[in-house]
């Protein structure tokens, strides 16, 4: 089995996991919301309502597709497509587990271990805003345009604080930008969150803002803007926007876990590597990574149904006057500590 075939299989598996997880995250969200509001949630389709995402998917595909007559048809279709593509692209640099071994050849559970991994993530995140902007503008609807403008200014503002909080992590993990190296440096319980709690907090908050999740879902705040940038969308194009949001959530959870919470590392991994076969350990580490991801997806939902939405001026003040200076001070302090006291 050549490395290329392995990578292709890995890409297909990651793709299917992303889609499946996003579908069941919609179900999970409704169940979590129901739990937090003391309701039952979806329970009609299948046992415990487990077939609900499939029913929703069928409904999305069968709905009538409406394209506004005065809109730019090409850009109107390009918007949700771009949003979906950028949501899926980030998964390429995430290390999913310890390497596997078949017939004496080692295969890394990572699509591409590029030496600028974390910058690649930031780059793709910064492209994510185009899907929303194009969709909002080409709808030719004032609510959609307002949503798109809110989304783009929010994403640009929070990207800076996000990048700054990542710099602090890079300073303590001997300067490598590769996500694989960052995860490798967090063996056992040696997680970055214990050295950089402030950076972790800032990164999680900005990740919420980049995913347009409550309390930062100003772009689609239904009480003021109807549906924001996807007001005019129907059928599966609306489905793509909603679906991509859950994929974004999944990928952000994976990035948060691998930057700050050790990725696939857990206490006792080294010991298991000495007693169990390599491939089994690899699957166990993948399971550990996935548990962390699922926890953060639950965290996203937990926050959504607990904290109300910000006002727009509060959002901007938080981004520029609180998170940004805090992130810069964090970088300064970390830099000083690393320079004068070593690691």
């Amino acid at each position: 089995m050549s490395v290329l075939i392995f990578k292709v299989i890995l890409i297909v598996i990651i793709f299917l996991i992303s889609l499946g997880l996003a579908a069941y995250a919609t179900y999970g969200e409704r169940k979590v919301a129901a739990f937090l509001q003391d309701r039952i949630g979806p329970d009609r389709a299948g046992p415990f309502g487990l077939l609900q995402p499939i029913a929703d998917g069928v409904k999305m595909f069968l709905k009538e597709e409406i394209i506004p007559t005065v809109s730019d048809k090409f850009l109107f279709i390009l918007g949700p497509s771009l949003f979906m593509v950028t949501a899926l692209m980030t998964s390429a640099v995430i290390p999913w587990g310890t390497p596997m071994e078949f017939g004496g050849v080692t295969y890394h559970l990572q699509v591409a271990d590029i030496n600028i991994g974390i910058l690649y993530v930031l780059g793709v995140v910064s492209l994510g805003v185009y899907g929303i902007m194009l969709g909002g503008w080409s709808s030719n609807n004032k609510y959609a345009l307002l949503g798109a403008i809110r989304a783009s200014s929010q994403m640009i503002s929070y990207e800076l604080a996000m990048g700054m909080s990542v710099i602090a992590v890079l300073l303590i993990s001997d300067g490598s930008l590769s996500l694989n190296a960052i995860v490798e440096g967090q063996k056992g319980l040696n997680w970055n969150v214990f050295y950089q709690p402030l950076a972790a907090l800032i990164f999680i908050i900005t990740a919420f803002a980049e995913c347009n999740r409550t309390p930062f879902d100003l772009p689609e705040s239904e009480s003021e803007l109807i549906g924001g940038y996807h007001t005019e969308y129907s059928s599966m194009k609306l489905g793509l926007y909603l679906f991509a949001e859950y994929i974004n959530m999944f990928i952000s959870s994976a990035i948060i876990s691998s930057l700050f919470f050790g990725g696939y590392n857990f206490p006792g991994l080294e010991y298991l590597q000495t007693v169990l076969p390599t491939n089994l350990v690899s699957l166990i580490s993948f399971g550990a990574f996935f548990t962390k991801i699922l926890f953060f997806i639950f965290f996203f939902m937990w926050v959504r149904w607990t904290i109300p939405r910000f006002r727009y001026d509060q959002l901007m003040r938080l981004g520029w006057q609180v998170l940004m200076p805090l992130a810069i001070i964090n970088v300064l302090i970390t830099g000083a500590v690393v320079t004068f006291f070593g690691n």
């Binding site: 930031l122 780059g123 910064s126 492209l127 805003v129 185009y130 902007m133 503008w137 345009l145 798109a148 403008i149 783009s152 200014s153 994403m155 640009i156 990207e159």
Partner: peptide
Amino acid sequence: GAIMVLMLFTVM
């Protein structure tokens, strides 16, 4: 990621 978003912003 940044400059063209601002450009698109203005044009819109």
